[in-house]
């Protein structure tokens, strides 16, 4: 080893040490959040619950179905958020094929005692996201079925946009009603 390398050896050592410390730190900091279903999909097997997520897309009459894990120890809104995140990822993959993106961020989410779930979307969902009424309806169907079928304690879903009741999601689908499982057949 020449003198030049020896000079840089402490610097490399320091960098490697920092990387190890960061990796360990991230593992211990992020993992607990992951258990709550907010980021990391690492869920202990004894706390995992399998739920079915449905994706309605294209002209296919039947949706594609995937089984995903949620943390059953997490609160109901957290579990629903987790499912919605999974649906968003699956839709992004679908849309990416056509060089498009889909953004349906959730502002807030409430569960009422009478079994009504209120989803409040960000306003961005209304602008230039969907190619027609069918795509809008497909997303609503995916959300309604994926959530209401997995949680029998919820019986209907109401969708708001920007904290307000609106006529349509993006100019087509009627949001003045609340949706039940029977609506999506």
């Amino acid at each position: 080893m020449d003198a030049k390398m020896q000079k840089w050896l402490p610097v490399f050592g320091g960098l490697a040490g920092t990387a190890v410390v960061l990796a360990v730190g991230i593992f211990f900091i992020v993992r607990p959040f992951g258990l709550q279903g907010t980021g990391d999909p690492l869920i202990p097997p004894d706390q995992a619950r399998a739920v079915k997520v449905y994706i309605y897309s294209g002209q296919l009459p039947q949706p594609s179905m995937q089984v995903v894990q949620v943390n059953k120890e997490a609160s109901l809104p957290e579990q629903i958020r987790w499912i919605m995140r999974k649906i968003a990822i699956l839709y992004q993959q679908e849309y990416k094929k056509e060089g498009r993106t889909l953004d349906f961020g959730i502002r807030s989410l409430y569960v009422r005692k009478n079994g009504l779930l209120i989803l409040d979307f960000e306003k961005s969902v209304q602008y230039n996201q969907f190619h027609g009424a069918w795509e809008e309806w497909q997303l609503v169907r995916s959300l309604v079925r994926s959530i209401l079928e997995n949680y029998p304690e919820l019986n209907q879903m109401k969708i708001l946009v920007g904290g307000q009741e609106v006529d349509t999601l993006a100019g087509h689908v009627d949001l003045s009603r609340s949706f039940i499982l029977g609506d999506i057949e």
Binding site: H131, T168, D174, R177
Partner: peptide, 24 residues
């Protein structure tokens, strides 16, 4: 296609929504 559509819901007459196909 049968879909809950806001603009048709309140119409008291035969009503349809037509999506014209256009190259995008």
């Amino acid at each position: 296609l049968v879909t809950p559509l806001s603009v048709l819901t309140g119409v008291r007459a035969p009503a349809v929504l037509v999506e014209l196909p256009l190259p995008a």
